[in-house]
Amino acid sequence: MMDELDWVSIKSGILEMARKRGAEVARVGDPALLEDAEPGLRPSDLLTDVKSMIVLGGAAPRAAEWQSPRVEVMETVGTADRMVALGSSVARHIEDTYGYYALNVPTATDQDDKAFLDFKAAAIAAGAGSPSLAGPVLDPTYGFLYLTVILTTLPLPVDGPLQEAACPAPQCVEMWDEKGTTPCMAVCPIDDGGCLGGEIQEGLVIKRRYDADRCRDRVYHYWTPGYQAALERALDEPDARKRKMILYGSFFTRTMWSITYSGVSQGQCFECIRACPVGTEQRVLI
């Protein structure tokens, strides 16, 4: 009976459902391609007998948000919540309709402060984007997107990785040839207080350097890392009145708002992607 099922049509139906509900990108990848990840971060560690990875991308900041003169606006629009909800919906649909296991991979952190799965690797394996020098997976049309991954025992035909990478974009190669840098590296140079470094050789990125800890402090500026740093300073402060100034002050207060409304501010630095040419056509409005 199972052999008679039209897997192509089933896959098409699932991905079309995801697109109608807000996914800009919907692809299927082979989970075996992630088996060389570190133990604990492989699809088979999360779902035994996993056969397919459905990767959905969407919910990027709106064009107006990118254009806002207030960087604080961008600090509040970074959230994967919509994609997580969509992923749960797709997983439920698969289990209810076809009777196969489907797991929406948690986007929270695991007990060791790591992700449950390498979402970037999953997206690359499925062709839901390609790697970038800046870090995020970039879809050639839409650029940066938030991702969700559904692991399932449903044996869907895979899409596979993209044949052509979005990064480096032609404009970036041109800038590299002229100035020895790219938009993302120009904005955030690792050798000048930033997070990114690398070179372009024959159209490929090589010698990429990335300061993950500095990037984390910027992306989670007024979230858990910022909260911890401010709390440490408060606890170290011997003067009770000054402690109070820290705890009731604007920085600590803002971290508390971000933490408690955690669905609102998950990503608080987008400057490398703001400057990135991939997907900018989507952001040019009236």
Binding site: V71, G193, R214, R216, A229, E271
Partner: peptide
């Protein structure tokens, strides 16, 4: 990972983002 940069890095981060967006 969370101890790599002190609280002063967060002010540098705010300045950076302001300048980059501008």
């Amino acid at each position: 990972e969370h101890d790599e940069y002190p609280i002063e890095e967060y002010e540098a981060s705010a300045r950076f983002k302001d300048a980059a967006a501008a």
